[in-house]
Amino acid sequence: MTKIDPAVDAPLTEAVVTGLSPEQVREQRRRRNPFRKPLTSLMRHAFLIAAAVLMLYPVIWMVVSSFRPTELIFREPGLSFDSFQLSNYTDGWNALTYPFNVYLLNSGLVVIGSIIGNLVSCSLAAYAFARLEFTGKRFWFAIMLLSIMLPIHVIIVPQYVLFSQLGWVNTFLPLIVPKMLATDAFFIFLMVQFIRGIPKELDEAARIDGAGHPRIFLQIILPLMVPALATTTIFTFIWTWNDFFSQLIFLTKPSLYTVPLALNAFQDAQSSTNFGEMFAMSVVSLVPIFLIFLFGQRFLIKGIATTGIK
């Protein structure tokens, strides 16, 4: 019996409906496939591999080049490790006012604050929308959905005024506090969808045992919605790590620069002379994304397949 790979075979509805084994379902699917002949199939793989290489070549080239001397990167731009060196990394690390670990730490703090904020505030709101019946629920739900589509640029100016009057500019608070207040409504929506899939009988059994809503939320719903929490964590990580616009606006002190701001400063300071070091630090900035991609892919693919996000 072939192992069912949920990523490849999901949703094997045909298997459930028709009672066929996964192999038979796959065979059926293969028969439907217009490129069934071995030769066309081979050509298809050749095309796909070429496309994948073309897509990933720039990134691979950047990684390889970051280990080569700058003058060689352009003179012999192939993928070779002939003059392998680490000096781009050691020099690039200290090329700006502060060593790069300062920027990594700053980015890390903003990311961790954002993740905690999103997890706590969005799950609370999602529980209310998914499980409680309250006056005006449909109205507030519609408002929540609309707020997902609101461009941040519409509110950034008054937000800046507000935060600068609070003395929060050049702190991480303008980047973290909004997440504590569930302004990333997208994740509320994602969690509502997930909680709706949890059988209500579980809540009712707990209620008969005398549990109130806080306990049902903490002891029943929260443990069951771990996959939704994981998806939220991963997407918050990537979005916050890559975010440039709001960090550019709220952080102007070099000691508070996050990784994207440091890279921007790097580009300004070196004015495209020292590509080796710039590539090296760019690679450093992408490492966390690569790691998440490797280990969290299941949640990423599921997350965007069910809700359609980037």
Partner: peptide, 23 residues
């Protein structure tokens, strides 16, 4: 109960989203 669960979201909606929009 719903009000308490939604409290962070209500505050965010008022101070971070709708308030700034009007402003």
């Amino acid at each position: 109960a719903a009000f308490l669960f939604l409290l962070p979201w209500f505050i965010g909606l008022a101070l971070i989203t709708v308030g700034p929009m009007v402003a």
